[in-house]
């Protein structure tokens, strides 16, 4: 028991939890923006993959790390545009389209990678983002090493939570996005374009998901390999519900999952001999499901989530 306590009070543990949470923060915020506008985006898993691959490849072929992030965002926005065109003006099933986008984006990423690197056995590497210590703050005992010695994308993710929360709650644009997810007819009657808002939100959200993917190849690891997303996109879908569509709670949920995952790795190392390691791999998902059950039973879904809006048709 005291070992567990030591583990949980180590700054390195929390630094790892935040690192693991970073892609989830991007993905959850991205999904949250889409869903707030009324569009479920199950393309997330594939968009993660596409972001990870395109960001990494940009850097591998000589691009700057930040250029890699930008390219990933644009690729993500592109898949977002495809998803939005199919689901918003054409009104197709958001479930089916999203899964299609995931399959397409994943396969296209693997294909591009194979074309570029036909005969590699171990994945080629790049020089990733390095941690930046925030002067002053990183010297605070415990908190410093846990919070303020992260890579730039992690700081960006946290900043983004504040920005998305502000835009959603306090700006006319955020209000219009929320209203499109609650009752698109109200948006239309007030002279705004539901299609414009929904397509824009899905593109912006998808760009964030792709940056989450790029974090994995440009910050966490230094290479791209198959199956590396490993269900992170699906976790984000659950985290949005867990967060009741609130950016602040999304950060909390992502950190919680990050902590479970970091714990799992450490438990494997300490008691891994007695218990098959797959049990530990399963742990964060199991705990996430439990947290989801407790937190979101009374979650208020956006009223028009997954309901297509066809202009001129009475609802």
């Amino acid at each position: 028991m005291s070992e567990l306590f030591d583990m949980l009070t180590a700054a390195a543990f929390w630094a790892a939890a935040i690192r693991i949470a970073t892609p989830l923060i991007f993905g959850t915020l991205g999904e949250l923006i889409c869903e707030r506008a009324g569009v479920l985006n199950l393309g997330i898993e594939g968009i993660f993959t596409a972001g990870a691959m395109s960001g990494w490849m940009t850097v591998y072929f000589g691009g700057d790390l930040w250029l890699g992030v930008l390219v990933a965002a644009l690729v993500g926005a592109g898949f977002g545009l495809l998803h939005a065109i199919l689901t918003v003006p054409l009104g197709l099933s958001q479930h089916v389209t999203g899964l299609g986008i995931t399959l397409l984006a994943t396969s296209a990423s693997y294909f591009t990678y194979r074309i570029a690197f036909p005969n590699v056995s171990s994945p080629p590497r790049i020089e990733p983002f390095q941690p930046i210590s925030i002067p002053g703050l990183s010297d605070i005992p415990f908190i410093g090493p846990a919070l303020f010695q992260q890579t730039p994308l992690t700081y960006f993710a946290v900043l983004l939570v504040v920005m998305v929360a502000y835009v959603m709650a306090r700006t006319p644009l955020g209000l219009a996005i929320r209203a499109s997810g609650e009752n698109p007819a109200a948006v239309d009657a007030q002279g705004l374009s539901v299609y414009g808002l929904r397509i824009g939100a899905v593109m912006a959200g998808s760009a964030l998901m792709a940056i989450g993917g790029a974090f994995l190849t440009l910050s966490a690891f230094n290479a791209f390999f198959f199956e590396m997303i490993a269900g992170r996109g699906w976790i984000c879908i659950a985290l949005v519900v867990f967060a009741s569509w609130m950016p602040g709670k999304a950060l909390l949920g992502a950190l919680l999952f990050g902590a479970f995952d970091a714990l799992q790795v450490r438990l494997q190392q300490t008691v891994g001999g007695a218990i098959p390691y797959q049990i530990f791999l399963m742990l964060p998902y199991l705990l996430s499901i439990l947290a989801l059950v407790m937190m979101s039973r009374r979650a208020a879904y956006p009223n028009a989530l997954m309901i297509p809006f066809i202009k001129g048709q009475r609802s």
């Binding site: 006319p172 209203a179 609650e182 109200a186 948006v187 007030q190 009223n303």
Partner: peptide
């Protein structure tokens, strides 16, 4: 059939679309 969003406040429903979308605050 009223075109109101149930989960938003009365004020939000009324001001929706009356201000520029690119404004930094409501």
């Amino acid at each position: 059939h009223f075109t109101l969003a149930d989960n938003l406040s009365v004020l939000d429903n009324i001001t929706l679309g009356t201000e520029s979308l690119w404004q930094f605050w409501k």
